[in-house]
Write a protein that binds this DNA or RNA. Structure first.
Length: 126
DNA sequence: GTTCTCACA
DNA sequence: TGTGAGAA
């Protein structure tokens, strides 16, 4: 199933199409790119070209925003996912203990809860 | 007709 | 985040 994933990563959508698909303004889409939440490619004319994965990511971002999570929070969430992905290999060599799992879940709930605010990036660190 | 960057009554 | 200007 690698073929499918490759197609979803093909940047073929202009910003206008993405706007209709995500119901986001061009301003917002460009801003999210500026924040590093998405990395659309550029064509010869310097126009942004998005992939289906980008669209999914934008819809996901929209949901997080709806849930009251701000940019800083979303960034942190993706940062965590990245860490998780990088850590996955290590986990394969040394599976997580029940204690590790409990600690991770605990941290997760604490963080998500702390991010659910319209305030700045001053969430509690335990 | 679209999209890009930059700036702000 | 919206919006308008000026260019591509």
């Amino acid at each position: 199933m690698k073929e499918k994933e490759l197609r979803r990563s093909l940047a073929v959508l202009p910003i206008g199409t993405v706007m209709k698909l995500t119901d986001l303004s061009a301003r917002q889409i460009r801003y999210y790119e500026e924040q590093g939440l998405i990395q659309p490619e550029r064509n010869a004319g310097n126009r942004r070209m998005f992939s289906l994965n980008d669209v999914d990511r934008l819809l996901e971002i929209k949901d997080y925003l709806t849930d009251g999570i701000n940019m800083a929070g979303i960034k942190q969430i993706y940062a965590m996912q990245k860490q998780r992905a990088a850590q996955k290999e290590a986990d394969l060599a040394r599976p997580l203990t029940d204690q590790d799992v409990r600690r991770i879940l605990h941290d997760e709930f604490l963080n998500i809860g702390g991010l659910k605010s319209q305030r700045g990036p001053n969430y509690p660190q335990h």
